[in-house]
């Protein structure tokens, strides 16, 4: 009986160590553009879309590029693999995941945060009166 507990214990400990290592390795750090430049790993940056600058979908490469301003007001070009996300215009904030290389942020994934989901604002109600 004791033997079984020891075997099970070892298996569980090994599993947890394995999980921890994978966790640390795959953790995507939250940084700003200035820091992202110096990190070769995949990172994520939070910011806002600069609507004044051009945003283009390149159909040949299937990439969507736009300019984003991070929380420290640094602007950087972002090139996303894929089309413009569905709720892009609505987003109050966006999070891009990827790597900053060769002067632009190459994003593999993008998250949009939409204000309309749970709370309404005063501007919205004026439109519907």
């Amino acid at each position: 009986m004791k033997g079984k507990i020891i075997v099970a214990g070892i298996v569980i400990v090994a599993a947890l160590i394995f999980g921890m290592v994978s966790f640390v390795e795959s953790n995507i750090e939250y940084v700003d553009f200035s820091k992202a430049e110096h990190i070769a790993k995949k990172v994520q940056v939070k910011g806002k879309w600069n609507k004044d600058k051009e945003s283009v979908f390149n159909a040949e490469k299937s990439q969507f590029s736009f300019y984003m301003v991070d929380d420290n007001n640094r602007e950087c070009k972002v090139v996303l693999d894929g089309a413009k996300p569905n709720n892009f215009e609505l987003a109050t904030e966006i999070v891009v995941k990827g790597k900053l290389q060769d002067g632009y942020f190459h994003a593999s994934e993008i998250l949009t945060k939409c204000p309309s989901k749970y709370e309404g604002d005063g501007e919205a109600v004026k439109k519907t009166i």
Partner: peptide, 18 residues
């Protein structure tokens, strides 16, 4: 003190052997 998420690859490496 800073929030960050894991990459999707984490879930695949950990759940595949299981």
């Amino acid at each position: 003190g800073k929030t960050s998420a894991v990459d999707i690859s984490y879930y695949i490496t950990t759940t595949l052997p299981l």
